[in-house]
Design a protein around this nucleic acid. Sequence first.
DNA 1: CATGAATGAGCTTTCATTCAT
DNA 2: CATGAATGAAAGCTCATTCAT
Lengths: 211, 211, 211, 211
Amino acid sequence: MSVSAAAVRTLPSGLAERLALAADLFAEHGLEATRVDEVARITGIPRATLYYYFPGKEHILAHLLSSTLDDMAERIETAAAVPGTGRERLERVLREHLAFIASHGATYRLLFAELGRAASLVDIARGVDRAIRAPLRAVLQAGVDDGSLHVLDVHAAASVVHGAVLVSGLEQLLAPSDRTTDRTDAILQVVFEGLGKERVDRRAAEDDHGH
Amino acid sequence: MSVSAAAVRTLPSGLAERLALAADLFAEHGLEATRVDEVARITGIPRATLYYYFPGKEHILAHLLSSTLDDMAERIETAAAVPGTGRERLERVLREHLAFIASHGATYRLLFAELGRAASLVDIARGVDRAIRAPLRAVLQAGVDDGSLHVLDVHAAASVVHGAVLVSGLEQLLAPSDRTTDRTDAILQVVFEGLGKERVDRRAAEDDHGH
Amino acid sequence: MSVSAAAVRTLPSGLAERLALAADLFAEHGLEATRVDEVARITGIPRATLYYYFPGKEHILAHLLSSTLDDMAERIETAAAVPGTGRERLERVLREHLAFIASHGATYRLLFAELGRAASLVDIARGVDRAIRAPLRAVLQAGVDDGSLHVLDVHAAASVVHGAVLVSGLEQLLAPSDRTTDRTDAILQVVFEGLGKERVDRRAAEDDHGH
Amino acid sequence: MSVSAAAVRTLPSGLAERLALAADLFAEHGLEATRVDEVARITGIPRATLYYYFPGKEHILAHLLSSTLDDMAERIETAAAVPGTGRERLERVLREHLAFIASHGATYRLLFAELGRAASLVDIARGVDRAIRAPLRAVLQAGVDDGSLHVLDVHAAASVVHGAVLVSGLEQLLAPSDRTTDRTDAILQVVFEGLGKERVDRRAAEDDHGH
DNA sequence: CATGAATGAGCTTTCATTCAT
DNA sequence: CATGAATGAAAGCTCATTCAT
């Protein structure tokens, strides 16, 4: 189920927990600028022990990213699984996603910093698709099927809502506010209603255009 | 006008051009993992000469990021300045933004990798706001004012459209396609029309419903 | 009888055999460059078990070297013990010595690599003297006593024949040939006949010259 | 002319001289156990400077070995070039060789420790052949041609004299004595006169055998 | 008795940076 | 002005060794 390259040795659960403490380090400094020494210090795991469980520094990061992606996938899938119309489920997923960004901010940012980096051990693009995009497409399609959503292009719609949530989520990380709920509502309003004054059916665009 | 820490010495235009070749390096590896040696090799500028013009490696990156932000600001402002309704100008800005991402992919990704990193020499958040968000807000507001756009919360709307464009732009970088125009159109459709079946005015949902 | 530092615990014979497999490793890489891990892998003895029987890595090597020296001593002494003239016994010893080098090539080389190294646990110089030089000197002296050998300086003669055998033995290791027997014969011919056109007795050169 | 892998950068002559001081270190400890730190300390060359001129530690050793082989080749060739009978030239070469061992003891031992090691950067076997064996064979052949030496198999004879000199040379290193000249003479006596009571022509061996 | 797990100590190597020319 | 040569500083990783079980 994990996206990560399998660790050579099974990581004791105690270590896995303490390792999570290193996520902020990697997020703040990036892979290269994060010193293994610092990871050891902040987690309390001796350097040599880290190398006993991981072949190298990058594998520690890969483990963290994979864990985060797995977490994210689980939480979003759970939110998507709650019964309801497509629209209701979409809203739940988006709120859950925003909450996840808020609680895993550092790692989430890191995920996007590493996204598109060629040499990454973790295929982040695939992980993001699995954890976020696929569930989004599923609920969007459900909305199309049950008539609760107006979606012409599921893929494009998934991009928009993902982008909206990602960007507003990062914004909140950089400039935290206590009006989080308001912001979330405002984002969702735009997503559901769009910016145009009138809805324009594509096939009837010519006619409407003149008015 | 530049966001960057000023280079200690005036950079000969020849060097500035060759330096742009290093953007991909920084984008692919990040600041720390990019070797000054590599920058020297790819630009053809001797290492010591780089240090003659820049106080340190990070200043080279800062220069590149600032240049890109300046470029982006100029192009988007130009697009926004073309006369028309707010809606028309918004569409132009979004298309221009997507084109910019496509042509400056590596640096753009880098911008977001560095975004939120504390120690950056360049205040990227501010630069992004200046280059992208402010113009977006301006045309959104113009659309509100001239009645061509349905926007309740300009700030939230800017987030959504920025996110939509950013995410779809990155997607195209990672999985290039020749249906770029189609994708762009699909994105804009969602942005303008929203996902909801019916538009619901918050305050007067009941009333509006009847119309 | 062993030259080695005694192993702290009695080594089960099973282990002793498997340990011999490590000789090549030490021979190829030397003491420092040979990893205990590799020794464990090639012998099938767990690392920690090696440390149960030996106080440290160098003691494993010492054990191997001592074993080899003991083997060599035994075989050469046996060859020397076969009745005959000094010359006959010398020839037998030399052939046995060459055979030993051929069959213990790696360890033999190692012996000379370690020879003269200060910190060795095994006094290799002494072991080599015991296993090789002393028997050589004994048969040379026997040849002097029974008149079957022409030897003015037993010590020097031992050096020459040792050198001849050592060098030609190593040569065969590095460039194996199926003309081994021929080579051996040729070496012995030089050893027994010398290179000079005429034999010149030092003390009675004039007299001998006439014969 | 050098056997070594070419140094990436031309080594300043000043450094080359100071580097020679490291030969003893390598000789005493071997490649692995010699710390680059120690090489830096003993030569006065900063560690990073060593790495500026050599790609790695082993290349420093390779340089030293190659230099020594080059030196040895030059000195032995010079000795062999002095006019005279083959026998006279051989004797000169052997004395020169012994002198060389005495003056370059550490490196010489190292040469034989590395001999036959697979991964060496320097092809020591070839270097030894070039520096020692080839000149030996040449003077031996000259002795055959001018009738001054009794040699049936030049190759075998070269092995014997090489072995004799090598072994006695190493002996003197390990147990220095002021009777060096005497020892040298004794060695040469054995080499020239052989150990056998009577010279035995190979073709007439059968007859003599019975006696 | 044997051994898997864990780690302290330290070394090679890298690289940003300086400076004499 | 520009740069080749040189180096101080630090980091990743390895590995011999220990010890609880």
